[in-house]
């Protein structure tokens, strides 16, 4: 388990940036989605979270930027604690980008409008500055020609690439990917995973919930296996996949490969 020392001593990573301690979340229907779950992530690290459905992976991501409220535990992101302070929560949300399974683009705005919006409203950029950033990012995700399209005119893969660009436009310190390719047709999954792998290579800190083990192997630094809202096992990618320690992990990996 990485801590302040191991983050600093690892040549590939920087200081601790995400600290989640003892997270517990019980839904209104009594389901315990998170059960004393802890995770520390270093700057520049790509952590892939896997586990069966209902294991609390998505809930964990959603707690990290305050979309779900935790019942117990502590979340600190880049030195800011996520608590009842609205100011802190907004600060964290501004620094943490999130990509959703269902894209969640704003359907009444063009691609350009979608990506400019928060830059202008939250970062206070001028329209021109925001557009410059937007066009550079669209170029990066291969969508520059579609700046004036509406989301409904785009394929799922294209929408998701725009959604990634929208999150990146805030220059986030951490990116959260919540099953970003699960709603996509098989033939377009690759284009989205490609964009994500590029980001990982550029040193973006990423926490990725996914079922794509190929991506985990290629782009991940560390894999976390969750079940029933708790961590079963975690470790660097190679040993994790080649020789998982836990019996439950072995069965899970056999089932999905």
């Amino acid at each position: 388990m990485p801590d302040k020392d191991s983050c600093a001593t690892n040549p590939r990573t920087g200081d601790v940036i995400v600290e989640a301690q003892g997270l517990t979340k019980v839904f209104a229907n009594g389901v315990k989605a998170l059960d004393d779950f802890s995770l520390t992530v270093c700057q520049g690290e790509v952590v892939v979270v896997i586990g069966p459905s209902g294991s609390g992976k998505s809930t964990f991501l959603r707690c990290l930027n305050g979309l779900e409220e935790i019942d117990a535990g502590r979340i600190v992101i880049d030195g800011v604690e996520l608590n009842h302070s609205k100011k802190n929560r907004r600060a964290i949300r501004t620094e943490v980008g999130m990509v959703f399974q269902s894209f969640n683009l704003f359907p009444h705005m063009t691609v350009l409008g979608n990506i400019n919006l928060a830059q202008e409203l939250v970062r206070g950029k001028t329209r021109g500055d925001a557009t410059d950033t937007t066009m550079a990012l669209l170029d990066k995700v291969g969508m520059a020609e579609r700046a004036d399209s509406y989301p409904a005119q785009l394929s799922g893969g294209q929408q998701q690439r725009v959604a990634i660009a929208r999150a990146l436009a805030m220059h986030p310190k951490v990116m959260l990917f919540d099953e970003a390719t699960s709603a996509l047709d098989p033939e377009v999954i690759g284009e989205v995973l490609g964009v994500m792998a590029d980001l990982a290579r550029e040193g973006m800190t990423m926490i990725v919930v996914t079922h794509e083990m190929g991506f985990a192997r290629e782009a991940g630094d560390r894999v976390v296996f969750m079940e029933h809202g708790a961590m079963v096992e975690q470790g660097p990618v190679e040993p994790f996949f080649d020789a998982p320690a836990h019996e439950r992990t072995q069965t899970f990996l056999q089932q999905i490969v």
Partner: peptide, 11 residues
């Protein structure tokens, strides 16, 4: 999802 996307952007 519209609320969540907006909130996650800091709106």
């Amino acid at each position: 999802g519209q609320w969540e996307a907006a909130h996650s952007l800091g709106l």
